[in-house]
Amino acid sequence: MSTTAPAVTATDTIRSPLAEFWRKFLRRRSAVVAGLCLLLLALAAAAAPWIAPYDPAGFDYDRVLEGPSWAHWAGTDSYGRDIFSRILWGARISLSVGLLSVMLGGIVGIALGLVSGFRGGFIDSLIMRLCDVLLAFPGILLAIGIVAILGPGIENVIYAVAIFSIPVFARLVRGSTLSLKQAVYVDAARAIGVRDRMLMLRHILPGTLPSVIVYVSMRIGTSILTAASLSFIGLGAQPPSPEWGAMLADGRSYIGVASHVTFYPGLAIFITVLAFNLLGDGLRDALDPKLR
């Protein structure tokens, strides 16, 4: 600490941005719990082949629709398959749908937003009008259309969900790009002759990331839910895939007869989506420079 600044006390050290982020993030206890939950889930998903007690596609016609027991922690479904094992395996699929679709939509959307905000003019209005069109198109309909055109299957569900994430990312990034473009350090970089592509990738992109990260974390939850809705209208994952939404949609006839068939996959979706959202809230608080 400098001797010329006696007002600064020893505890008021200047922290690195990362340390600052951690300090604030750890203060949001719900976000920390949510993050740990998701970490655990990811580990469980990764370890599913080793920790799942049964084969997720293993039929047992003598043990159909049994309630939870010591042998089957979450009971069995209408084919006698172990629901707990299916949820573990399904975590791989559902988490991948969430992550991949948002990443895919995010990358395209960020690229469009950067170019749009940075270049301005005709390109900007073109991209923004296209985003308007995409936004005005009802999201689930777009998904129905894409799945109908490409055929059902988990990959196409990912594309479908990705496409309607694009315009929101594009708008978000365009907004921050516009304000960052005026920033002093960008001006300085430009003055010393840094080329446009470099400017966008090295100087502006990192500045837009905080808001993007927050949005990503929330969007993942939405994507998992959208995949479930697609299963509900019969355009989701293919059987016998243990994707959570498909399990929930498939078991919905048993509400009132064997409610455990939908309860556990429903709970899995609920907890996961909740956790992603709480994590997002925590990240927002930690990343937003205005919140002290």
């Binding site: 055929g151 299957g153 355009l235 293919q238 059987p239």
Partner: peptide
């Protein structure tokens, strides 16, 4: 491989 098809498809 099971491929469910929607009516139109």
């Amino acid at each position: 491989t099971v491929t469910p098809l929607e009516a139109g498809v």
